[in-house]
Amino acid sequence: MLYPAEWQALWLTIKLALFSSLLLLLLTAPLAWWLSRGQSAGRNAINALLTLPLVLPPTVLGFYLVLLLSPDSWFSQLLRLMGIEALAFRFEGLVLASMLYSLPFVVQPLQQGFGQIAQDLLNQSKAFGANNWQLVTQLIWPLSRPALFSAFILSFAHTLGEFGIVLMIGGNIPGQTQLLSMLIYDQVESLNYARAHLLSGLLLLFSFSVLFWLYQQQRGQQQQGQQQRSQK
């Protein structure tokens, strides 16, 4: 059904979505925690900065990334000092770009989820004598698991649909940076509508299933909560 090049692009797309979503979760969780613990001008500034990828056209982000990842930029020179080649036209570069692009999709649900853990509850647990490790494992982790989960799914699905940035910094190299969305673009350009249909349909179906599943999960949790309350 799919040609090898298409399988390759599909696999690369999923790999990219997995890598960038997991890394993003790990790196932004502490930041989202800090943001959820109160209000201040500093927090607002950082919130605004993190939301930028949502409103900027991908070309703007892509343009800055092209500059940043080009072999003679300060960033690439710094990487070279650490023994890493320039990231332009490479999978690692795409991971970095996807992480920036999906930032708001991870930070916002996390921040919301963390924000629902009442400060009173944390303070009381501390007063009981709980140490930080106990707070994280017994309180914060179980209470924010749904938020971590939806942040991951949102970021994953969002990366699947990434196009603009990939176009600018990826280079469309099969096996390295050629994603499904790029392949569809190529097929449409060469008027190969049959393949474009197939690949687009695949992506559409997959994205719909993921989002539908996510909403089902959320509804399930709400219903559970209501049931518990009505049993009272």
């Binding site: 009442a118 009173d120 509850l121 303070n123 009381q124 501390k126 007063a127 009981f128 017994q138 209470l143």
Partner: peptide, 20 residues
């Protein structure tokens, strides 16, 4: 002094409990 060292427990009118 850290909350965990005081052993002073404040109980609010609406009990603070772990929902899970």
């Amino acid at each position: 002094l850290a909350l965990s060292k005081r052993k002073a427990l404040y109980l609010a009118p609406d009990a603070v409990l772990m929902p899970h």
